[in-house]
């Protein structure tokens, strides 16, 4: 289940920094992580710590986008809360996918659009309210930003 808390949240962690200094090499071997890297960064996992970027060629995991680094942290450390504001709207689909696999809570400080992903299940923690469509999601979330 994906739970989102909108607005300032002091304990929310900054995903890109967490990733750079804490990632485990075996995370990259997970096909779901590889799918997120391909989906967001259009980059392909090769082997070991090598990823092939269409812009820079071979890159280490530290050079993945802040958005996909945060997604990986949310997925791999579900016991922690990360600030998904580092994730652009092209990460929305993947946040929902993570929520189907694990119970995660993220913090958001902008109105990320989930348009085109309906029906979905998002628990808005500020009101403990489940929303399943974009209209209910926007009309609830906007009150806390």
């Amino acid at each position: 289940m994906l739970t989102i808390y909108f607005g300032d949240m002091e304990q929310a962690n900054y995903g890109p920094t967490w990733f750079k200094y804490n990632y485990e090499p075996e995370w990259l071997e997970d096909p779901f992580v590889q799918a997120m890297i391909e989906g967001v960064d259009k980059s392909r996992y090769i082997a070991g710590l090598v990823i092939e970027s269409p812009v820079f060629g071979p890159i280490p995991p530290e050079r993945l986008s802040g958005g996909v680094q945060t997604l990986i942290m949310i997925y791999e450390k579900p016991e922690l809360v990360f600030d998904a504001t580092s994730c652009g709207e092209n990460c929305a689909k993947w946040l929902l996918e993570i929520g189907k696999r694990k119970d995660v809570t993220v913090n958001l400080n902008y109105l990320m659009s989930f348009d085109g992903q309906e029906p979905f299940e998002i628990m808005i923690a500020n009101e403990h309210k489940m929303v399943t469509n974009e209209k209910d999601y926007v009309f609830t979330a906007v009150l806390y930003l």
Binding site: D41, K42, V55, G67, V68, N90
Partner: peptide, 23 residues
């Protein structure tokens, strides 16, 4: 050699946002 950015700033405050992995 790999990337080129070309943009114009018109006012005192410009905000850049949008998708992840756009550079």
């Amino acid at each position: 050699g790999r990337v080129k950015y070309d943009f114009t700033v018109r006012r005192n405050i410009t905000v850049v946002q949008g998708d992840s992995a756009t550079g």
